[in-house]
């Protein structure tokens, strides 16, 4: 079947207004880093490089890493700094074509058949073609992402892909390699302009190699202390240098402990925010113990850290921040 360019019924009112400034794609690795920084995201060199390549080569970017290292945030920041729409597909087990790609509007199709009957037109080929036209198609995120958008191709975020099952992954292969979708009743539809695709995975299971092969792969690690301080400064500037340095030193200490779930970057930010709310200007043992639940999410981990480890961690963090 010849792929056709996709232009379903023009949508009105659901895209961003005309005056949204559209930023051009970055022209170098450094440009990409600067772009993300403008959105409050502090990337390392590896991420800037792979993101720049993804944008330039028009390939999906596959981001893998522990929970809370800023995978989803890449897509959000990218969409806002480039002035593109963000189309998000949150994955879950059992996600199927009807919720992810498209669905036929059965009540309307039914109605059309009844109307045709009432008007005396019988069932012929024309009716079959009619009720399988774009008018009766409900678009879900993947199909919507292949549509022309007023301010350029959207950012398509396929979030936590590891939560779906293999059949859905297999379906994505067509979308990710050719930016096209095959609807049996209509044919193959290809995007005029391929969307910017970001796929994230928490690695709760291994995603199939066939899918990874179509993407650029990037592992996001916990940030270094230096980068984490920079991120904290960009995100929560009111926390101040002293508290930020202490928070980062303490969290970095926790990551070295072989906990069941080491805290991610998201937890660092939450914690700094929580400490701000409590008016803490620096760490002390009582405050840390009272707020450990913001950083650690397993009771085993919390009870292990509480007490001596907290005491030592606070002392170290203070000493470090004083330097």
């Amino acid at each position: 079947m010849i792929p056709r360019l996709l232009n379903l019924s023009p949508k009105s009112g659901n895209s961003v207004p005309d005056h949204t400034p559209v930023t051009l794609l970055p022209a170098s690795v450094d440009d990409t880093a600067a772009l993300l920084r403008r959105g409050g995201y502090v990337p390392d060199r590896a991420l800037s490089t792979s993101l720049y390549l993804a944008l330039t080569l028009k390939r999906p970017l596959f981001l893998e890493g522990e929970a809370g290292v800023g995978k989803t945030e890449v897509a959000k920041v990218l969409a806002s700094t480039l002035g593109r729409d963000l189309v998000r597909l949150q994955c879950y087990e059992g996600l199927d074509i009807a919720t992810a790609v498209y669905e036929w509007n059965y009540p309307r199709q039914m109605m059309a058949i009844r109307l045709a009957e009432a008007a005396g037109r019988g069932h012929d080929g024309a009716l079959g073609r009619d009720i399988y036209s774009a008018e009766y198609l409900i678009q879900r995120p993947l199909l919507a992402a292949l549509q022309p958008h007023r301010n350029g191709a959207p950012v398509l975020l396929i979030d936590e892909l590891d939560r779906t099952d293999e059949p859905f992954e297999a379906f994505l292969l067509e979308v990710l390699s050719d930016y096209q979708i095959t609807i049996p009743e209509i044919g193959t539809m290809r995007a005029v302009e391929p969307p910017i695709v970001i796929v994230t995975s928490n690695r709760t299971r291994e995603v199939h190699d066939a899918l990874k092969r179509r993407c650029l792969y990037q592992w996001l690690d916990y940030p270094t202390a230096e980068r984490e301080r920079e991120i904290l400064k960009a995100r929560i500037p009111q926390a101040g240098d002293k508290l930020s340095a202490q928070v980062v030193a303490f969290v970095q200490m926790l990551r070295g402990l072989e906990l069941f779930k080491p805290p991610g970057l998201a937890e660092t930010l939450d914690w700094a925010q929580a400490l701000m709310v409590l008016d803490a200007s620096e760490l002390d043992r009582a405050t840390v113990e009272a707020t450990l639940g913001v950083v650690l999410k397993y009771q085993d981990d919390i009870s292990r850290v509480r007490g001596d480890i907290t005491q030592r961690g606070v002392e170290q963090a203070r000493k470090f921040a004083a330097q």
């Binding site: 170098s28 060199r45 490089t49 690695r203 291994e206």
Partner: peptide
């Protein structure tokens, strides 16, 4: 990928090839 970047920068060359050729951590 190498055509899209400045290949005089060894670090960028490394990350670029890494992004393309590596599939798992």
């Amino acid at each position: 990928a190498l055509q899209a970047i400045n290949i005089a920068d060894r670090e960028v060359v490394f990350y670029a090839l890494h992004a393309v050729l590596v599939e798992r951590h």
